[in-house]
Design a protein around this nucleic acid. Structure first.
Length: 497
RNA sequence: GGCGACAUAGCCAAGUGGUAAGGCAGAGCUCUGCAAAAGCUCCAUCGUCGGUUCGACUCCGACUGUCGCCUCCA
């Protein structure tokens, strides 16, 4: 068994192996924070987060770099519009992005380098290209000469002459060829600028990724990732900037591109404006469900985001949670350590083996997360009959699988996965007064204590077989968002989703 | 115009040259004071037309449809 990944560079499914020992070096194109990030951005990051986790599960030491392109035309324009500094724009939108990713359970990259902090490396690469006759200086900047690099267009499958026929290329008297692109832009009045051999200015889009991937990972490295819409021109240009300096080696061994997200029938895009900001979307939906939904779609396919599909994902996730809690209860497991969970999945006990194998086979096949998730669901029926130590091992293995997918519930809340969820302010106040009214006091001060106090009153009513009173209390709790469920073992409660 | 992707049940969605995962919804049943939840069971022949093959949903071709990229884009 080994991981196979689709490589955009060769347009084929290939066996993955690190270039160097046990170490896997990944560079992911992050964000240009000039506007609110949206769910499409999250989808890409989510996928690479799972890839990173799976590689770790397989035993590799992963170095994950994700850049921040913190200077570009749109950031400058936005800053002017809002009357703030360009760095304020970056902090605002990047900060929002980071906060949203945290909610989604996406782990922070090992390095989050910024373009403006890597001017020396950028200059070094441009100088190298200049020496090779691939870059040239003009009156408003330094440009890359696409005709000077025969392999230009290979990654994205374009041909220079065909590109020239495009209606959108813009000729400029500053460039030798309409397809040439800027490596360095000379300062215009009022623009932020850094020193360089060509005078003050700023890097063009693309060069920052060539510089920062090289700086932190070395060349060549293992995997370069990003959204499918970056393959041209961004990644093509990165390759064109980097590979002339590598004496025939590729910049990255694997190029992995994620499919685009659609909303109302067209691509989610900052420029089209057809998106809901990510932070708003995460206030509306459970972030774990959002994540579970994306896991059920092939990462390379374009996908639609709809209210129906998120609802379906939420339901499925609840079943997974309940089974996990159930296994933990029957196996008497109070807490699961990540390392134990991964080990239980790596070396599965006999009863877990079919699930573990199907799970790995799915992910080995070009990260088929939908298949991996299906393997878990298909196993749930069998899992329910496990008892004792078997149940304990199953709980750990299931938790490990959920960890790899990034949808594991907090490890110390197995018995009541949602009980600690936050109740909104109005309902908390209503619950408190309900508690005062029913119990004559509101001792404690937590949602949990108030609910338990009310449930004690209800338990008494139930012992007296006072069903009317019992139902009344259940309805009252439902009114403030607490859902009570009765079973043979007693009553449990959760906060309504 | 050039390049490319996709088309599987009500919805979402995997997958394989040998006869279709999974989730949601729906139906029936079990449990239950009731309710909810949960559990069990059931529920498709894979856009159209040709071809290759012992056999195709899976390969090839044509067609139809949807979408993306062609220098703002995860």
């Amino acid at each position: 068994m080994s991981l196979r990944l689709y490589n955009s560079r060769t347009r084929a499914l290939e066996d993955f192996a690190p270039l160097e020992g046990n170490r896997v070096r990944i560079y992911m194109c992050g964000l240009t924070p000039s506007a609110d990030p949206h769910l499409g951005h999250a989808r890409s990051m989510l996928f690479f987060d799972v890839l990173r986790r799976y590689l770790e599960f397989l035993g590799y030491a992963v170095t994950y770099v994700q850049n921040v392109t913190d200077i570009d035309d749109k950031i400058i324009r936005r800053a002017a519009d809002e009357g703030v500094g360009w760095y304020d724009v970056v902090e605002k939108y990047y900060g929002s992005f980071v906060a949203s990713l945290e909610k989604l359970g996406v782990r922070r990259p090992d390095v989050e380098p910024r373009a403006t902090e890597h001017i020396p490396k950028i200059v070094e690469i441009i100088r190298g290209l200049e020496r090779m006759g691939i870059a040239y200086e003009s009156d408003d900047g330094v440009y890359y000469s696409v005709r000077a690099w025969p392999a230009y267009g290979q990654l994205s499958g374009r041909h220079i002459d065909e590109l020239l026929e495009s209606v959108r290329i813009d000729a400029s008297e500053h460039k030798r060829d309409p397809l040439d692109f800027a490596l360095w832009k000379k300062q215009k009045p009022g623009e932020p600028a850094w020193d360089s051999p060509w005078g003050r200015g700023r890097p063009g889009w693309h060069i920052e990724c060539s510089a920062m991937s090289w700086e932190y990972l070395g060349e060549p490295f293992d995997i370069h990732g990003g959204g499918l819409d970056l393959i041209f021109p961004h990644h093509e240009n990165e390759v064109a900037q980097t590979e002339p300096l590598l004496a025939g080696k590729p910049m990255a061994n694997f190029w992995v591109h994620t499919g685009l997200l659609f909303f109302n029938g067209s691509k989610m895009s900052k420029s089209l404006g057809n998106f809901v900001p990510l932070d708003e979307e995460l206030r509306r939906h459970d972030p774990r469900a959002v994540r579970a939904l994306f896991l059920q779609i092939d990462y390379r396919k374009q996908a639609n985001f709809t209210a129906d599909s998120i609802a379906a994902a939420t339901k499925g996730l609840q079943r997974l949670d309940e089974t996990l809690a159930d296994l933990a209860r029957r196996g008497d497991v109070r807490q699961i350590e990540e390392a134990d969970a991964l080990e239980a999945l790596r070396s599965p006990a006999r009863a877990i083996e079919p699930m573990a194998r199907a799970f790995r086979e799915a992910l080995d096949g070009d990260m088929n997360t939908a298949g991996a998730l299906a393997a878990l669901f298909a196993w749930l029926t069998a899992a329910r009959s496990l008892e004792g130590e078997q149940a304990a091992q199953a709980a750990r293995a299931l938790y490990g699988a959920l960890w790899v997918l990034g949808i594991a519930p907090a490890g110390d809340r197995l018995a009541e996965p949602r009980a600690e969820a936050v109740l909104d302010v109005a309902r908390t106040a209503a619950l408190r007064s309900l508690c005062e009214r029913l119990c004559g006091h509101a001792n404690g001060g937590s949602v949990r204590e108030w609910v338990e106090a009310i449930l004690d009153v209800r338990r008494q009513a139930r012992r007296e077989r006072n069903w009317g009173r019992s139902d009344e209390l259940r309805d009252a709790l439902a009114g403030v968002g607490i859902v009570v469920k009765d079973s043979k073992e007693g009553s449990t409660w959760t906060i309504a989703g």
